[in-house]
Amino acid sequence: MRRERSALAAILPFLWLAIFFAFPFLLVAKLSLSDAALAMPPYAPRIDWSQGLAGVQAFLAGLDGETYARLTQDRLYLDAYLSSLRLAATGTLILLLIGYPIAYGISRCPPRLRQALVMAVILPFWTSFLIRIYAWIAILKPAGLLNVVLAKLGLPAVDILNTETAVLLGLVYAYLPFMVLPLYAVLDRQDETLIEAAQDLGATPISAFWRVTFPISLPGAAAGALLCFIPMAGEFVIPDLLGGSDTLMLGKVIWTEFFANRDWPAASAVAIVLLATLTIPILLFERQQAKVLR
């Protein structure tokens, strides 16, 4: 009986998600089937409620897949789509490679130090994303700090601001805590006696790591990879501030279509395509979280 009453607590969050999350997605889907128009709001058709059912019918007849057809005809959208996925995948791979040693290193430290180190990894996440990306502009720009340091060391200057390299650097920098924390969570819980058993049976520390620790940590790696890949594929701030005009990512395309071109149907269609692409990783992520919660 108590359990049923607790379920009543779900009503408020359900309503909230229905109004502010689920219903708006239907609107995006609807708008992606509309046409751009010179009006405010800038799209057509709209439902004419004064005509009753006929108005709704006329509205439904006005919907078509023209915007999607437009997306397939322009190379720009395809390029943006592919480079979004490529950058997000590359970024995730780099994050795994540098996040793993950090998480593993923390899990080897004495308990008190471990907590402080986890705190130190989380803290940058609490400071503004925009500000942290802005900080990189001052470092990477042609007359920036990186080149000053390189010149002092007698090395040639590099000009990477407004390139894909800078975007990758920004993605890795901004999402590093999201990779380290899930990895640390599994590595920290690992039963130390397993390693000892492996070593008692003659395994070297390195082979004990690869054959015991590493397989156990894979769920953490999967959680971290999904947690980074999904938002990175739709990232706007990083490609906009650190990338050049030739660095196309879908998040930036949606923003430009919406704010600069005022083409709301195109922005919606791109959003639907991005969402459809991310559905599989999102479902994988949810399944994993459900396992953790149980």
């Binding site: 999350f21 995006v28 999904l226 947690l227 999904i230 938002p231 594929a233 739709g234 990232e235 706007f236 879908l250 998040g251 949606i254 923003w255 919406f258 922005a267 919606s268 959003a271 991005l274 969402l275 991310l278 999102i282 992520f285």
Partner: peptide, 9 residues
């Protein structure tokens, strides 16, 4: 995990 641009739009 939803990209912010999609949520915002």
């Amino acid at each position: 995990v939803m990209p912010e641009v999609i949520l915002g739009l």
